[in-house]
Design a protein around this nucleic acid. Structure first.
Length: 745
DNA sequence: ATTAGGCGATTTTTT
DNA sequence: ATCGCCTAAT
């Protein structure tokens, strides 16, 4: 057990306290994953059989990392432990048990897109206008209800406005249809096990006995459903260890619930609590800066994170003219950093707030010849051509899956249009069966043309053929022969555009992925593969083989560390994101997110922002992020003098010299009149209009149509200036100042 | 009945 | 820039 000596004493105690409930409050870089892995190793070393372990993480990356580290510590004997994300582990469990709650073992897993499609169908059928009631909003609302363990019936009771009433109707139907389709959405993967355990205490008891030791990583990000699940499974032996850090809670939008931390102590009053406060990862400079930032959150648990590490390099700030300029500067600084710090590409990460930002940095990296690897983004499995092939495979595995059926019934085009599908739908409803089965009952009497019936039958025959083949062909053979049969590759080839060629490659890649999967996994059937793709967002990511810079969102970076980290796009409206700016809570979540980003860095941190950026197809002129200003100026330096050298800028215009409160959350604007702040239109002084001079963020104005409102944001300059205004009665609008004729009140 | 092309609305983060 | 929806053409 020599490995245990590689931990400090608190870490050791935390790792060895294997009986009873344990909470480990672990600051960033304090060796949290290390403690968890050693804990697993320790459990195995004292004779606990690996199959008694359930280790739950939040992301696939975290799970992979954990597995890797455990294997390197104890070897393959950990293989039968269940280590993975909540979603994948409970999907696995449901594959064994779903029949007890009325689902087939071959259930489909619907991703967000599939759910949305289902909701659109339902809205259509229930005649609920998709114009007035946005399917996306309804999907989000349903998901958030499910995260909070609110059932459709409860939701109906508490619905407080027309939107929620409609949502309640759709919610009910949605759950019904999921079941009809033998499908579960992401939330169901957590809710259905709860239902299973509640209805079948014996099954719960079986898993309680099996999983004697439960470990939960990133506990601050669990939602109520996850909390309830682990509470149930741990209910008998109570050997549960949770690890978390409130300062790194960044999934509030997905239902993560801070109460879970408080309730843990209530539900397990005998819990032992360990605090890990020594940071082993970052330099003092980085840690101090991160602390200065997070201190601005009112809502937080006071913590003193400290380190023995050296002071290290100052943080470099890249002040840039445009997004292109920013990307180029990042690329240039990567080259410099590699020489200066004697590191490799793979020791560098580039983080951003939104996936959309990756494109511009990708271009710059390509031009500079810097190898890179993107995590997430336009995920492989979300690409249309891939989803199409997957839909075929899903339908073959689960013919009840009407969403997949609809997706491919006319792809490639085979003359089955909306009208025919609607007829089929009516038939399916009548005989209470799936679309697939309904094909058999379609007759001309139902008003469908002979031609259409023939085409439907052909389609059914095609799928049936593969359902039959499935018993004799391997997953790999079956999917290859399928792709051949439906002829999509030929179609792409004929199109011949760059785009379609890349689609073709993607399909080939999918086929290789299936082959590889079957080879690697003993029971690597089609079902298992489909489950894997539904839940694994980033395919083959993060293998250390490639020497490449890693690009990803700050969310994806959680739990990872790099020598050199670039955080890009530190601008108001981007980071913190526009949608969060009006709510203190959401700004605090953005700030925690920034904190997570900063603390990924071991040695040298770069922060960048641009004064102009293309967003949603148009040019915007953002201001630097408030988070930048929260770092004291003795911790950073400007990496490049470009700001001063290049035309159109001079030192006075640098944001650090500008009045600092140009953007304040709406709620804090109450006494704004005393603190008027001039909005900076620092690009074209000449064209700056008179109106813009008088208007400020926070000004109260009157508009001839919309009435009274307050300015939340000013974008652009001169004639192009647009104001985001929150009107008392008309809600939030974006107006061009030159047209709006606003009256200052 | 289907498809192609044009128009308007819309994008945070993940399983 | 991209997606979905609507309308007009095939």
């Amino acid at each position: 057990m020599s490995f245990i000596n590689q931990l400090n004493s608190v870490q050791q105690n935390a790792a060895k306290q294997v009986e009873g409930p344990v909470m480990i409050v672990a600051g960033a870089g304090s060796g949290k994953t290390r403690v968890l892995t050693y804990r697993v190793a320790y459990l195995l070393s004292i004779g606990v059989p690996p199959y008694q372990l359930l280790v739950l993480t939040f992301t696939n990356k975290a799970a992979d990392e954990m597995k890797k580290r455990i294997v390197s510590l104890v070897g393959d004997k950990s293989a039968s432990a269940w280590i993975g994300t909540f979603h994948s582990m409970f999907a696995r469990l449901l594959r064994y048990e779903s029949e007890h709650i009325g689902y087939g073992k071959n259930f489909s897993i619907y991703d967000t897109d599939d759910s949305l499609g289902l909701i659109k169908n339902i809205q259509h059928d229930l005649e609920i206008s998709a114009q007035s009631f946005k399917p996306n909003a309804i999907r989000a609302r349903i998901s958030s209800a499910k995260n909070k363990l609110v059932s459709p019936d409860q939701f109906e009771i508490i619905a407080k406005d027309i939107f929620e009433e409609k949502t309640a109707l759709i919610f009910k139907e949605y759950q019904k249809r999921l079941k009809q389709n033998n499908a579960m959405d992401f939330d169901d993967l957590l809710l259905k096990p709860i239902e299973l355990f509640e209805r079948h205490p014996k099954i719960l008891s079986k898993y309680q006995d099996r999983f004697r030791f439960i470990l939960v990583d990133e506990y601050q990000d669990t939602n109520r459903a996850q909390y309830k699940l682990i509470k149930m499974i741990a209910g008998k032996y109570k050997n549960i260890c949770i690890v978390g850090d409130d300062a790194q809670s960044i999934y509030g939008f997905r239902g993560a619930d801070i109460r879970n931390i408080l309730d843990f102590e209530k539900d397990f009053p005998e819990a032992k609590i360990f605090h890990l406060e020594q940071n082993y990862r970052s330099t003092q400079t980085i840690l101090t800066a991160a602390d200065q930032v997070i201190k601005n959150n009112v809502n937080r648990i006071e913590k003193t994170l400290w380190t023995d590490n050296p002071k290290g390099e100052p943080i470099s700030v890249l002040s840039c003219q445009s997004d292109t300029d920013e990307s180029e500067k990042v690329a240039a600084n990567i080259k410099k950093a590699i020489l200066k710090y004697k590191i490799d590409f793979l020791n560098i990460a580039i983080l951003y707030r939104t996936n959309a930002q990756s494109r511009s940095i990708e271009d710059a990296l390509r031009r500079s010849g810097i190898p890179y690897l993107i995590i997430g983004g336009i995920e492989f499995y979300k690409r249309k051509e891939i989803k199409d092939v997957i839909a075929y495979l899903r339908l073959i595995v689960n013919p009840k899956d009407d969403i997949s059926f609809q997706r491919i019934v006319n792809y490639p085009v085979r003359g089955i249009g909306d009208v025919t599908v609607n007829h089929l739908k009516a038939v399916a409803e009548e005989c209470k069966c799936s679309f697939f089965e309904a094909v058999d009952f379609v007759t001309e009497a139902k008003g469908i043309s002979k031609n259409a019936i023939e085409k439907l039958k052909q389609f059914r025959k095609l799928i049936q053929k593969f359902i039959d083949l499935k018993t004799i062909l391997s997953a790999s053979e079956l999917s290859r022969s399928l792709v051949d049969d439906i002829g999509i590759l030929k179609e792409f080839k004929e199109e011949g555009t760059v785009e379609s060629l890349s689609r073709m490659e993607n399909v080939h890649e999918l086929l290789s992925a299936i082959t590889e999967f079957s080879e690697k996994n003993e029971n690597g059937g089609l079902e298992a593969f489909l489950q894997e793709v539904s839940l694994v967002a980033d395919v083959d990511q993060l293998d250390d083989k490639h020497n490449a810079v890693t690009l990803m969102t700050v969310h994806s970076a959680k739990g990872l560390e790099y020598d050199v980290v670039f955080i890009m796009g530190l601008e108001e409206g981007l980071f913190p994101i526009f949608q969060a700016i009006q709510s203190t809570n959401e700004v605090e979540e953005e700030r925690r997110l920034f904190y997570v980003g900063m603390t990924r860095c071991m040695r040298k941190l770069y922060l960048s922002y641009a004064y102009s950026r293309y967003r949603m197809g148009e040019l915007t002129y953002p201001n630097p992020s408030r988070f930048m200003k929260e770092i004291k100026d003795d911790l950073y330096i400007y990496e490049n003098g470009a700001l001063r050298k290049e035309s159109g800028f001079n030192k006075e215009l640098d944001f650090f010299d500008r009045p600092i409160k140009s953007q304040v959350p709406f709620k804090k604007l109450k006494n704004y009149s005393e603190k008027k702040v001039v909005v900076q239109h620092f690009r074209n002084y000449e064209s700056q209009s008179q109106v813009a001079e008088e208007l400020h963020v926070g000004s109260v104005v009157r508009h001839s149509t919309f009435g009274k409102g307050r300015i939340l944001q000013l974008n652009g300059n001169g004639d192009e200036t647009r104001a985001v205004i929150d009107f008392e009665n008309a809600g939030r609008k974006q107006l061009m100042l030159k047209y709006a004729a606003l009256e200052v009140l």
